[in-house]
Design a binder for these strands. Structure first.
Lengths: 225, 225
DNA sequence: TGAGTTATTGATTGACGAGTCAATTAATAA
DNA sequence: TTATTAATTGACTCGTCAATCAATAACTCA
């Protein structure tokens, strides 16, 4: 009965949660499974988290902040617009996000956010951050068109991720050392799309002029309490 | 105790399943709930479907074929490449796909496909069909680049759909008669991306030359048994 | 009408799982 | 050492649910 600090235990339980979601591919994981995977007794999970949803939300925060750290680190030192865009794209398809557990967690958290308001809010934060990162990097290249284009690029990143996520091959390939392969393909697609959007003659307006200036993240915003 | 044909009952149970998934936002629906919603006794579901997963798969097939019909109908009579592309985009963001139940079903089926091989196969069929529709429509405009661009457009459609899906506003807006509004915005984004991709100077090659010609759907293919 | 067939019922079973809690063990302090 | 505090246990409760199945109601055809 080794005793550990609250922070340690919480972290272990969160990691175990993500692992179990990863290996079962679903949120239908029992607290006992999670506890066992964390090497603790079934009751302990409820000492550190209010209930199962609390555990899920903590796991979600963990995944999101992991991704956030990846992006931040990738951006470090990148000066040119293209470098920064590539950093974002690569972080989105990097090893961290492409672990089997991370994929399973992402997809299941999307589903969770349909029934859990807190979960929805967390995803909203992620979406806003991604959009804002993209706008910052795009603005030097295309100015006022950045927010509009950023929406499409953000959508493309999510969509491609989802497609690769369901392609079991990419997961296996990761396991087999060539880890960057599929991720690289994903980020190349993203860079290609960015190139196309930026090359275009910027005569045309943005899709919806009205909402682009006042609130660049309009379409991502849900009803705020 | 009204008696109906097998086809009718199956259809009713499938509709009830989608409704319950829609109203709860999860696949954690009891067979009793579904049966009640279909107006039959709890036992009957198991007379027409082997088990709960069978029901889910049938519901999934129903959703996918609904979408397929939408696309087919939208394409009817459309001759020019742009018309056809717009038809695909609009069907993807049309009323049918944007019903609350359809959204919930789609997202949850994505999650389901992480643990259910048959579900994964169904999604794969959807992805292949979408890709192939896009390639057909794009080829007149960009020739050999079509398969590569189509991957990005398909990803964009999925990704934007997901973002709108989680934006609770769009759902409510739908309920309130302005149904086409958000869908139209989504498809406009798609058309904008297509314009950008097609306007680009086609000097540059495709991302992965090797897999583009022999098998246009390479990245979508899972391990086929 | 009655015998045979098929859809439908709903009570039941058996398993499982979230969350509780009193007891136990380890660490710390005095 | 003993007393105090805090972490940890695991058996238990209570509800739930997938799946079964014997009984029954409706339909068909003779």
């Amino acid at each position: 009965m080794a005793r550990k600090s609250e922070a340690e235990r919480r972290q272990e339980l969160i990691a175990a949660t993500i692992n179990e979601i990863g290996s079962t591919g679903t949120l239908n994981v029992t607290t006992s499974q999670i506890a066992k995977s964390a090497g603790v007794s079934p009751g302990l999970a409820f000492h550190y988290f209010q209930d199962k949803e609390g555990l899920f939300l903590a796991a979600m925060r963990s995944i999101l902040s992991e991704y956030g750290n990846d992006v931040r680190q990738a951006l470090r030192g990148k000066k040119t617009a293209d470098e920064r865009l590539e950093a974002i794209a690569e972080a989105s398809f990097g090893m961290t996000s492409f672990r089997r557990e991370a994929i399973s967690a992402w997809v299941n958290f999307y589903a969770l956010s349909l029934r859990s308001e807190p979960a929805r809010r967390l995803l909203y934060v992620y979406q806003r951050r991604l959009h804002s990162n993209l706008v910052d990097a795009l603005r030097p290249k295309i100015g006022v068109r950045a927010p509009d284009v950023a929406r499409r690029i953000a959508g493309l990143i999510d969509g491609l991720y989802l497609r690769y996520a369901l392609d079991t091959r990419s997961i296996n390939v990761i396991d087999a050392e060539t880890h960057q392969l599929d991720g690289a393909e994903g980020s190349q697609h993203v860079m290609r799309a960015i190139a196309a959007e930026c090359a275009e003659i910027s005569e045309n307006d943005v899709i919806s002029t009205e909402q682009v200036d006042p609130d660049p993240t309009a379409i991502l915003v849900g009803p705020q309490e």
